[in-house]
Each structure stands twice: as C-alpha cells, then as structure tokens.
Design a protein around this nucleic acid. Structure first.
Length: 457
DNA sequence: GGAACTCGCCAC
DNA sequence: AAACGTGGCGAGTTCC
C-alpha cells in the first residue's frame, strides 16, 4: 500500500497526538463573558464615533456622490473603485488579480488623513468580529474549545479552528491587550506558555547540517541577527544593547534573515529594511532622514558609507545575500539545491519524522516544508509526553492548546514547580534523546501569567 | 439563499 | 530563471 505515513513512529505521532489534542480541546479555555460583552460595546461605540468623523469629510461627500448615496464604508471594492477610478489616483500597490490594493500599506502610501480613519476602524472591527464575537459565539458554559487539526496542512503541521487559537493578536499591543484580556485559566489557576526558541532554524540544522548554522544554534553568545545587522548597516562595533542598534537587529531578523530562509530575495529584503524599518524614502537620500542612529539619523550614517539611495542599498544587500549563501552558509545552500533536485526527480520529499510530502510544489515550498513539518512534530511529541504525565500523575494542571512551536497550560499553582521541571525535562532532554538526528540543543522560553490573571502580563 | 470567490489581516 | 513558507476567518461580492 502506498501511504505518506512511512513509519510506525509517524503513525503513533498522529494517533497519540490526536488523542492528546482532543483532551486539550475538551478542557478548553475559560473566557470572561462579562468582559467580552462590555468590550464589544466599547469597540462598537468607538467604531461608530470614527464613522461619524469620517462622514464629515469632503472625501466621504465625494465618495457618496460618486455612488449616488450608496456608500458601504466597509467595502474595499467600493473604496478601490473610488480611489483608483473616480479620483484617478495611480495605485501604489496591486492585489494578486491586478486590482488596485486597499490594504494597510497601500492606503498609508496615499498619505490621506481620511484613510487613516478607515484603517483605525478596520483594526477595531477585526478585533471585535474575528476574536471577541467569535469567542462569545463558540463558548459553552464560559469555555471555548478550539479544535486542533492534524489532517489539514500539507507540511504535516497542525491547524486550529472554531475558533482559531493559533492567530490571537500578539504584535500589536492594543489588539493583544483587548483580545487576551478575554482569556483566563480556571479559577485559582494560572496560564503558562512554553515556546521553543528558533525552532525552525534548529530543525533546518538537522536537515542541512551546516556547521556555521549549527555553531549559531549551539553557542549562546553567537548572534546571527546581530552579525548580519552589523554587515547590512555597516556598523563596527555593533552593540545590540544600544536601542538604536537593537532596532536594526530586529529589522535584520525580520527583514532579512527569516525572509532569506523562506526563499525571499535581496530586493524585497532591502526595500523592507530601508523603508519600513529604517523609515527611509524611495529614490535618493538626504541627510537627516530615517530612524535615529548613533546621535544622528540612518541616512547620515549610510551616506557616510557611500550608500546614498535606495538603489544603492539594494545593490549592497544583493552582495550581502550572495555572501550569506556562498560564504556564510554554503552547506545550507548546497542542501537546498540537493533537496530541490530530489523532489524534482522523485516527486516527493521525506521528513526525518517519517512523513512523505508529495504533490505539486514550487521550489520554495519544497525547501520550506521539512523544517515546518518537523518542527511541529517535535512540539507534538512533547505535547504527547506531557499529556501522558498529566494523566499518569493525576495532575490538576491541564494542557489547553498549542501554537506550532509552543504549548499553553492551565496550571494549578501548587503543581507549578513540578510541571515546569517536567516541561524542561521533556523539551530539552527527552526530545533530543528520542530523535538522534537532532544535532543542536533545544531551548525554551517560559512565560508565566498571574494566578487568576488573564493571558496578558 | 447558499456556495465560492476576493481581499485583507491575524498567527507561526 | 525566479523571487516569502503554512494556515483560519470575516466582510463583501458574484454566481447559480
């Protein structure tokens, strides 16, 4: 029989994983219905207020006239038609179907006060409708029971739905606070979140065995993002403890290193780092532009290094990219080529965890699949182990969810020390013992929330 | 009136 | 030569 589950271990992972995740689903997460009701009303009032403000503008009057009074303020189709056909503004950005885009970035580039009101309304509606309304709809007796699926994702990671527990706001502080204040542990308990640090990069080490990548994952003082930031922004010395430098490290991590690992290329990376993170304009740069750096501005520094325009920076990042793959991580680069060749020859790729991924894949998909699937399998193996301990030792603590590389627990404070000890044991010792192909240490971060407190610190 | 689609946006 | 991987979901819209 032809199957994509190639080993008993892989089968067990799915079987036992399903059972463990089902127990988490059954347990559920407590929601504060009182809070949700109040916050919904508050958000609705705020949205209504913004809507009234928007309707006073000339922009709105013109829009209303153009559709003979039938404005739907929530319709991006209408908005795009008004901006790009009626007002005949040239779109700065296009959707996949070639229409003028109305997403956050596109509207911000148009630089119109009225559009900022629409963006604020859009954000508040998202928080209210996708999260708070969904929690209220899905809850039973004050608990939501998100599903964790193992049969959906083609890389063999998981997905979650009804409601999706894997996309709760985290990066935007305001959205995070509003949504996470709705989520609680059981009375007298506390939420604990355990997440693997740099999990996908570590799993890539297991596939490509690149010595330099392994070095970065093994030596605590080695910092790949800081090293790349120093190169990209030509800073020597580079001190990530300085706030200005730390911002550039973040820009490098999220604008260069991770996108490069996902298969992006230098041009996107350069524009994103310079314009979105560095706040520099397109075209030529002048002194005094961009974010602050070493007592001056980013443009002052880059101009002093001979980089006087975005185009010049793009060329610079092109050279950095070449060096990144040719000299810094040559074994990783060679592995990517081999891996792609194997897929092209056989039409499938085999994961270290015993799963075969087949079907039509583009190069980047084929190359990204192993780390994504395998990283989740490490998480799932730990989830199963902790679930087994929970039952065997009759914990009052419960596993309540999982977000690809993290586990969320509802912890009885009396059991806290023991649970944390078991979490550390399973994730950093038992897991690498279980799978001998793991060739770098596994590290975790643990976030502890207040007893009877929400999922906000 | 529901299915399927587009777009936008949240997470890793 | 080409050029960011995996999902879920709400609102609007179109199709049948």
């Amino acid at each position: 029989m032809d199957t994509n589950i190639r080993s008993v271990d892989a089968y067990k992972l799915m079987h036992e994983g399903t059972l463990a995740l089902t127990r988490a689903e059954q347990q559920g997460i407590r929601v504060d219905l009182n809070y949700i009701t109040k916050k919904q009303a508050y958000l609705t009032a705020k949205i209504t207020h913004l809507e009234k403000k928007f309707k006073l503008s000339k922009f709105y009057a013109h829009w209303e006239h153009s559709v003979k009074g039938r404005v739907n303020i929530n319709s991006n189709n209408q908005l795009a038609h008004f901006l790009y056909n009626v007002k005949k503004i040239a779109p700065e950005k296009f959707t996949v179907t070639g229409q003028g885009s109305t997403d956050d970035e596109a509207l911000q580039m148009l630089n119109m006060e009225e559009l900022n009101i629409l963006l604020e309304m859009r954000k508040l509606r998202k928080v209210r409708d996708t999260y708070l309304v969904a929690f209220e709809r899905e809850q039973v007796n004050g608990y939501i029971h998100p599903f964790f699926n193992l049969h959906i994702v083609k890389t063999y990671r998981s997905s979650s739905d009804r409601p999706n527990f894997q996309n709760i706001p985290k990066r935007d502080k305001e959205a995070m606070d509003i949504v996470r204040q709705a989520l609680y542990p059981r009375p007298g308990h506390q939420l604990v979140e355990v997440d693997f640090s740099g999990m996908e990069v570590r799993i890539n080490c297991c596939y490509n065995r690149d010595p330099n990548l392994i070095h970065y994952m093994t030596n605590k003082s080695a910092d790949m993002h800081a090293d790349m930031a120093a190169q990209i922004f030509m800073l020597d010395p580079f001190d990530k403890k300085l706030p200005d430098h730390y911002v550039l490290r973040q820009a490098t991590k999220n604008g260069f290193v991770f996108p490069q690992f996902y298969g992006d290329y230098y041009k996107n990376c350069a524009v994103n780092m310079a314009c979105n993170w560095g706040k520099l304009p397109h075209g030529n740069w002048s002194p005094g532009q961009g974010i602050s750096l070493n007592g001056a501005r980013l443009s002052d520094h880059l101009i002093s290094k001979g980089i006087k325009s975005l185009d010049s920076f793009i060329k610079h990042v092109k050279e950095i990219e070449r060096n990144f793959w040719d000299n810094k991580f040559p074994d990783y680069a060679a592995w990517k080529d081999r891996w792609w060749a194997v897929y092209q020859k056989y039409g499938y790729i085999d994961l270290l965890t015993g799963f075969r991924c087949s079907g039509v894949m583009a190069r980047n998909e084929a190359i990204n699949t192993p780390a994504q699937g395998t990283a989740f399998h490490c998480l799932l193996w730990c989830f199963i182990e902790l679930d087994r301990m929970m039952i065997q030792e009759q914990w009052d603590t419960r596993l309540i969810g999982q977000i690809h590389d993290s586990i969320i627990l509802d912890v009885n404070p009396d059991e806290f020390d023991h649970v944390i000890a078991m979490v550390k044991q399973v994730t950093t010792i038992d897991l690498p013992n279980q799978w001998k192909w793991i060739n770098v240490p596994m590290e975790i971060d643990i976030d502890v929330f207040d007893v009877d407190g929400s999922w906000v610190k």
